[in-house]
Measured scan of single mutants.
Amino acid sequence: MSIQHFRVALIPFFAAFCLPVFAHPETLVKVKDAEDQLGARVGYIELDLNSGKILESFRPEERFPMMSTFKVLLCGAVLSRVDAGQEQLGRRIHYSQNDLVEYSPVTEKHLTDGMTVRELCSAAITMSDNTAANLLLTTIGGPKELTAFLHNMGDHVTRLDRWEPELNEAIPNDERDTTMPAAMATTLRKLLTGELLTLASRQQLIDWMEADKVAGPLLRSALPAGWFIADKSGAGERGSRGIIAALGPDGKPSRIVVIYTTGSQATMDERNRQIAEIGASLIKHW
């Protein structure tokens, strides 16, 4: 067993022997301040990774656009098919120029040779490549099948209805392509620590998230040296922004954090800054 596999296998073990965790309302004060600064709703939840206990939450059962955070769930569904012998990570998928959609920095470079399922998941999570996500959605049967996968996990809230990039439209009061912070946090925890996926697939999923290259201005910008984070960000229309993450000190994750916002007129930089400040408060009061 590799060191990384050992780390993920012992996530519940280490967490069980940690000192009790206590909620700190100071972080919620910052979440509410972010709402004021952005002029928009902000949803927040913080779960203990081992027990699933909610440590703090704000608007945990209000719907927010998922945006690209759905790509972690998508690759979880792909990995479940791999575990069941219905898919192979090494299978190569070929596609054409007509398949390319807006923001496809990886797939646009491989029109000639195609990409493997493993490479597509890596591109979808680490670079948020939209064509990679659409190609992977095709392998599982489309958005409705991802929703069905989530329902089978016990998540009857999260739903995907459309493809990239239309799913980022974020129309107010439109339930399409949305989740709730509580539902997303619980589902992410199941994917990373539950028995739904094999140990190898859980490790692969967290490795992809740990290698995320496009979430630097968010929670990662607030992390002290030595902290662990595996995350996936999302951005959408109407001032929408979000991030889902597993993080913790001492090089291992111990909490799940989900943050979503929508309806702001603020710039992307300002949305990023507010999420980073929430992260800084979380870490300060850990």
Results as ranks from 00 to 15, higher is better:
residue 262 T to Y: 04
residue 273 R to E: 06
residue 117 V to Q: 01
residue 265 Q to R: 09
residue 182 A to H: 08
residue 115 M to F: 10
residue 108 E to N: 00
residue 284 K to S: 08
residue 96 S to F: 00
residue 201 S to K: 12
residue 191 L to F: 03
residue 152 N to H: 11
residue 224 P to W: 05
residue 268 M to D: 07
residue 187 T to W: 01
residue 184 M to P: 12
residue 277 E to A: 12
residue 258 V to Q: 09
residue 43 G to S: 07
residue 90 G to M: 03
residue 110 H to F: 00
residue 255 R to D: 13
residue 109 K to H: 10
residue 163 W to M: 11
residue 136 L to Y: 09
residue 164 E to H: 02
residue 222 A to R: 10
residue 75 C to M: 09
residue 185 A to I: 06
residue 258 V to I: 03
residue 200 A to M: 13
residue 285 H to A: 03
residue 57 S to P: 11
residue 269 D to L: 05
residue 254 S to A: 02
residue 139 T to C: 07
residue 176 R to D: 08
residue 187 T to L: 11
residue 180 M to K: 04
residue 124 A to N: 04
residue 133 A to R: 03
residue 149 F to S: 05
residue 170 A to E: 09
residue 230 A to P: 02
residue 123 A to N: 15
residue 213 K to P: 09
residue 197 L to D: 07
residue 50 N to E: 14
residue 125 I to S: 00
residue 206 I to H: 12
residue 247 L to M: 09
residue 192 L to R: 13
residue 103 Y to G: 01
residue 278 I to C: 14
residue 281 S to P: 07
residue 228 F to P: 08
residue 116 T to V: 01
residue 269 D to G: 06
residue 109 K to D: 15
residue 240 S to V: 07
residue 57 S to W: 12
residue 36 D to E: 04
residue 261 T to L: 07
residue 273 R to T: 14
residue 132 A to C: 10
residue 273 R to S: 10
residue 176 R to I: 03
residue 74 L to W: 03
residue 254 S to K: 11
residue 103 Y to C: 01
residue 184 M to S: 08
residue 177 D to H: 13
residue 238 R to D: 03
residue 154 G to H: 06
residue 163 W to S: 08
residue 121 C to T: 08
residue 32 K to I: 02
residue 106 V to G: 14
residue 244 I to D: 04
residue 101 V to S: 12
residue 140 I to V: 07
residue 249 P to G: 09
residue 217 P to A: 09
residue 200 A to N: 14
residue 255 R to T: 05
residue 141 G to Q: 01
residue 234 G to K: 00
residue 254 S to V: 07
residue 124 A to G: 12
residue 60 P to H: 11
residue 138 T to F: 09
residue 205 L to F: 03
residue 35 E to C: 15
residue 247 L to Q: 13
residue 220 R to F: 03
residue 193 T to M: 04
residue 231 D to T: 06
residue 253 P to D: 03
residue 249 P to T: 09
residue 79 L to A: 01
residue 151 H to R: 04
residue 278 I to D: 10
residue 212 D to H: 12
residue 94 H to W: 12
residue 182 A to R: 07
residue 219 L to A: 06
residue 131 T to F: 15
residue 94 H to F: 07
residue 212 D to F: 06
residue 228 F to W: 08
residue 278 I to Y: 13
residue 140 I to T: 07
residue 186 T to L: 11
residue 182 A to W: 11
residue 43 G to H: 00
residue 89 L to W: 06
residue 260 Y to E: 12
residue 41 R to C: 15
residue 222 A to Y: 11
residue 256 I to G: 06
residue 278 I to P: 12
residue 244 I to T: 09
residue 134 N to A: 07
residue 182 A to L: 09
residue 184 M to H: 12
residue 105 P to F: 04
residue 110 H to R: 03
residue 73 L to W: 05
residue 51 S to T: 06
residue 238 R to Y: 12
residue 223 L to H: 02
residue 186 T to Y: 11
residue 268 M to W: 02
residue 136 L to H: 14
residue 28 L to Y: 08
residue 141 G to M: 00
residue 273 R to P: 08
residue 129 D to E: 00
residue 263 G to W: 14
residue 115 M to V: 10
residue 138 T to Q: 04
residue 161 D to Y: 08
residue 258 V to D: 07
residue 188 L to S: 11
residue 280 A to D: 12
residue 161 D to L: 09
residue 260 Y to R: 01
residue 107 T to I: 04
residue 155 D to E: 04
residue 252 K to H: 08
residue 246 A to F: 04
residue 87 E to A: 05
residue 273 R to V: 13
residue 117 V to Y: 01
residue 76 G to T: 04
residue 94 H to Y: 15
residue 278 I to A: 11
residue 160 L to H: 11
residue 135 L to F: 14
residue 82 V to G: 00
residue 252 K to R: 09
residue 268 M to G: 03
residue 139 T to V: 08
residue 233 S to V: 09
residue 59 R to D: 13
residue 52 G to H: 13
residue 280 A to V: 10
residue 100 L to Y: 11
residue 276 A to V: 11
residue 31 V to G: 05
residue 65 P to C: 04
residue 272 N to A: 00
residue 206 I to N: 11
residue 41 R to M: 00
residue 262 T to Q: 14
residue 209 M to I: 08
residue 267 T to I: 09
residue 34 A to N: 08
residue 183 A to M: 10
residue 240 S to Q: 02
residue 89 L to S: 09
residue 225 A to D: 13
residue 107 T to R: 13
residue 172 P to V: 12
residue 83 D to H: 06
residue 117 V to S: 14
residue 120 L to N: 15
residue 190 K to A: 15
residue 282 L to G: 05
residue 197 L to V: 07
residue 206 I to M: 13
residue 95 Y to M: 07
residue 266 A to V: 06
residue 35 E to K: 02
residue 175 E to N: 10
residue 205 L to T: 04
residue 177 D to I: 12
residue 172 P to M: 14
residue 131 T to L: 06
residue 253 P to Q: 06
residue 25 P to I: 04
residue 243 I to A: 06
residue 235 A to V: 02
residue 232 K to S: 14
residue 42 V to W: 15
residue 241 R to Q: 07
residue 182 A to V: 10
residue 132 A to T: 05
residue 108 E to M: 04
residue 209 M to K: 05
residue 156 H to Y: 05
residue 248 G to D: 10
residue 165 P to Q: 10
residue 260 Y to T: 04
residue 83 D to Q: 09
residue 162 R to A: 11
residue 144 K to R: 08
residue 140 I to L: 13
residue 88 Q to A: 14
residue 70 F to S: 06
residue 252 K to G: 10
residue 51 S to L: 01
residue 135 L to C: 12
residue 153 M to T: 10
residue 49 L to A: 10
residue 48 D to F: 02
residue 90 G to E: 03
residue 143 P to W: 10
residue 181 P to L: 03
residue 285 H to T: 02
residue 207 D to Q: 10
residue 278 I to S: 14
residue 99 D to C: 03
residue 261 T to M: 04
residue 280 A to L: 04
residue 38 L to E: 01
residue 192 L to F: 02
residue 209 M to T: 09
residue 220 R to T: 04
residue 138 T to N: 07
residue 210 E to L: 11
residue 190 K to N: 12
residue 81 R to F: 01
residue 245 A to V: 08
residue 37 Q to A: 13
residue 181 P to K: 01
residue 239 G to E: 09
residue 159 R to G: 04
residue 176 R to H: 11
residue 207 D to T: 08
residue 48 D to M: 08
residue 137 L to N: 11
residue 241 R to T: 07
residue 283 I to E: 05
residue 252 K to F: 02
residue 95 Y to K: 11
residue 56 E to W: 07
residue 49 L to F: 07
residue 70 F to C: 05
residue 107 T to Q: 00
residue 97 Q to M: 13
residue 248 G to R: 04
residue 129 D to R: 00
residue 24 H to T: 08
residue 90 G to L: 06
residue 83 D to C: 06
residue 208 W to H: 15
residue 166 E to R: 10
residue 78 V to Y: 13
residue 241 R to W: 05
residue 86 Q to P: 09
residue 245 A to E: 12
residue 28 L to N: 02
residue 159 R to H: 05
residue 184 M to Y: 03
residue 107 T to L: 15
residue 166 E to L: 11
residue 285 H to G: 03
residue 236 G to F: 03
residue 175 E to T: 13
residue 145 E to W: 08
residue 198 T to F: 14
residue 142 G to Q: 10
residue 250 D to K: 03
residue 120 L to F: 00
residue 86 Q to N: 14
residue 37 Q to F: 14
residue 154 G to N: 07
residue 149 F to G: 06
residue 184 M to D: 12
residue 96 S to A: 00
residue 153 M to R: 09
residue 111 L to N: 07
residue 133 A to C: 07
residue 74 L to D: 01
residue 87 E to Q: 11
residue 36 D to G: 05
residue 71 K to G: 01
residue 190 K to I: 03
residue 68 S to Y: 00
residue 282 L to C: 06
residue 263 G to V: 13
residue 148 A to S: 12
residue 261 T to N: 11
residue 134 N to T: 05
residue 83 D to A: 10
residue 108 E to H: 00
residue 98 N to T: 01
residue 130 N to R: 12
residue 112 T to V: 13
residue 119 E to Y: 15
residue 230 A to F: 12
residue 223 L to E: 00
residue 266 A to F: 14
residue 121 C to P: 09
residue 26 E to W: 15
residue 246 A to D: 04
residue 213 K to Q: 03
residue 98 N to F: 01
residue 105 P to Y: 01
residue 261 T to Y: 13
residue 128 S to W: 11
residue 28 L to I: 04
residue 156 H to E: 11
